[in-house]
Computed example of a mutant assay.
Amino acid sequence: MRTKNTESPRLLVSNRSVELAIWLSIGSIFLFDIWTHPENVSACFAYAIPILLSLFELKPRPFFYAATATALSIAGSFAVPSGDLPLAAVLANRFIAIATQWVVAVLVKVQYRRQVDMQQQAEYQRRFVAILSHEIGTALTTITGQAYRLARLSERISPNDLKARAEKIRSAAERIEGIVGRVQFASSLGDGTIPVGRRAIDVGLLLATLLDQLKEEQRCGNIELHASSERQFVEGDEMLLRQLFENIVLNSVKYSRSSDAPISVHIAAHAAVIRISIVDRGGGIAPDELPMVREPFYRGKSSRGTSGAGLGLYFVERIVEAHNGRLLIESDVGAGTRVIIDLPQSRDTKP
């Protein structure tokens, strides 16, 4: 996630304190080195201490300190005339100490890299759980809504309506089961990626079914679907594509200025891809925020007063990438937003 430098003054002071301690250590070791006989190389080994201290910096610089220690170790050998040992022997002993300095620097760098990787992995797992909760929550909303309507209409509901609503509950439950199954399979792979199914999907039929359901469940009445009579097929995973389109449409509904503001969904063949455009007449996104709306957990100024975790578009982009597609977002403040998804056409026209 792109963020500005927001390090607290306390962290900056702490980092300066560590840096000051490192330079004081280096200076003290150098003074001790030139005060003692050049044949004594213990000071050169002592340079490993400030190199190790660099681990406590926000961004460790062990190689920089090792290079400084190397230069001072060589300079220290000429500060005081050598005694019985020839200069070559003095330098040889010091080069052994210098090699130790660089070994310590490499170990510090490796340890820092391991810490960064562990932090990134922890952050990835946290985001993954948040995304999973977000998507399961969307399906649970369907189940809760349909169950509520069944309870209210229990005395006068027709058998056909009962069957239709029960089917929607079953479909939402299957979506949750499918998500959990994919997560379990991904965990067994150990790489945290959700596998994507590959088959021909009639994107027009998928969107028509989805929009009908959203109109009923979310009371999104003013959504228009524009598609040619010719069926358009993409190759991909029906469940993930449904989540992709659902996220975008619900975002458009959420940020539209009123329930009457029209939302248009267009489907058309465009070169070797099927282009799906979702256009709303909402408040739009500011130009400085547009590059960041795909970042996880980012919520812009227009999101104030609305619920959400800032994960919708992040998850959308991951699904688009998994399908070898492209996501474009165009927006004008006060005029609305246009989300464009290009998905490769399927050669197979049989779902």
Rank of each mutant, 00 (worst) to 15 (best):
E135D: 13
I98G: 04
R326A: 09
G197C: 06
C220G: 09
I49C: 03
E7S: 13
P262L: 06
H37M: 07
L107K: 05
H270L: 10
S54W: 05
E246F: 02
S158Q: 10
F45C: 01
R170M: 11
S277W: 13
K254C: 04
P159W: 09
S25M: 11
E238L: 11
A92E: 08
V249C: 11
T193E: 07
A88T: 04
A186H: 01
R231S: 04
S229E: 11
T142K: 00
V80P: 14
L240C: 00
E317T: 03
W35I: 08
D161C: 03
L91S: 14
T193P: 04
S42R: 04
I329S: 07
R231V: 02
P195F: 03
M239I: 08
I98M: 05
D280I: 13
A269V: 12
T337S: 05
R94D: 12
A164T: 08
Q119P: 11
D191I: 06
D348F: 04
K4A: 15
P296K: 02
Q111K: 04
G197F: 08
C44L: 02
D342M: 14
A67R: 06
S54I: 08
T144P: 06
R175H: 05
P159C: 10
R113C: 11
V106D: 10
Y112L: 02
V339M: 10
I26W: 00
P291G: 15
K215P: 14
S82T: 14
A147R: 03
F78L: 09
D117F: 07
E19Q: 11
A227I: 08
P62N: 11
I169Y: 00
V80F: 13
K168E: 07
E19A: 05
D84I: 10
Q115N: 09
L153H: 00
N40G: 01
D84S: 09
G336L: 04
I201C: 02
S14P: 03
A105S: 03
G221M: 11
T306W: 00
R170N: 08
H266Y: 05
P50N: 12
N324A: 13
S229P: 09
S42G: 07
H226L: 12
T349C: 09
S28R: 04
A79S: 12
I285Y: 01
F64A: 14
R114V: 10
L327N: 07
V18N: 05
R198K: 01
V80W: 11
K350R: 10
S188C: 12
I169H: 04
F56G: 01
C220S: 10
T141N: 03
R156D: 15
F64M: 14
Q115W: 14
P262M: 07
D237Y: 05
V279G: 07
D84M: 10
V110F: 15
V90E: 12
V333I: 15
R126G: 07
R165A: 01
N93V: 05
F185K: 06
A67G: 05
I176K: 00
E317N: 01
N5Q: 02
P62Q: 15
S82W: 08
F128I: 10
E123C: 05
S17C: 15
A66Q: 04
N222S: 08
E289P: 05
P291K: 15
E224C: 06
A200H: 13
V41K: 03
D117T: 11
E317R: 09
T6C: 06
Y148V: 10
Q120H: 14
Y298C: 14
K350H: 13
G284A: 15
G308D: 06
E217L: 02
